[in-house]
């Protein structure tokens, strides 16, 4: 495998780690962290893809955009977590299961 392929596969694996984290983690703050890990994997994969296709500039602008958008999502996620803690007094996602069916 070439370096770039390793980077691409590594990005996918890191995203997989983040996705696994989202499935098992019960603390809201850690859920946001798992989301961040997933997006970091995506960034690696994007960088590798841009390198393979020889479009470094495109890759850079994409990665910057993703970082910005992802930061906004993380901020909203953390704000919601703070608000959940205020209203319900816990960060456990198992307590957030009133809406069913």
């Amino acid at each position: 495998m070439s370096d770039v392929e390793i980077l691409l596969v590594g990005g996918f694996m890191l995203a997989g780690v983040g996705l696994y984290g989202l499935l098992v983690i019960r603390n809201l703050i850690k859920v946001v962290v798992a989301m961040q890990i997933m997006v970091k994997g995506v960034l690696l994969a994007l960088a590798a893809a841009a390198e393979t296709s020889g479009q470094i500039n495109l890759g850079q602008s994409m990665i910057l955009t993703v970082i910005v958008a992802d930061t906004v999502v993380a901020v909203i996620g953390l704000a919601l977590a703070v608000q959940v803690r205020r209203v319900k007094g816990t960060l456990d996602v198992r307590e957030l299961s009133e809406l069913r069916g």
Binding site: L22, M35, M38, V42, A48, V66
Partner: peptide, 21 residues
């Protein structure tokens, strides 16, 4: 909504990386 959307958009980006490569 936020968590599911964020996963969705990350998956789309992975797809974009595959298409670009």
């Amino acid at each position: 909504y936020l968590v599911q959307s964020a996963v969705g958009s990350a998956l789309v980006m992975l797809g974009i990386a595959l298409v670009l490569a």
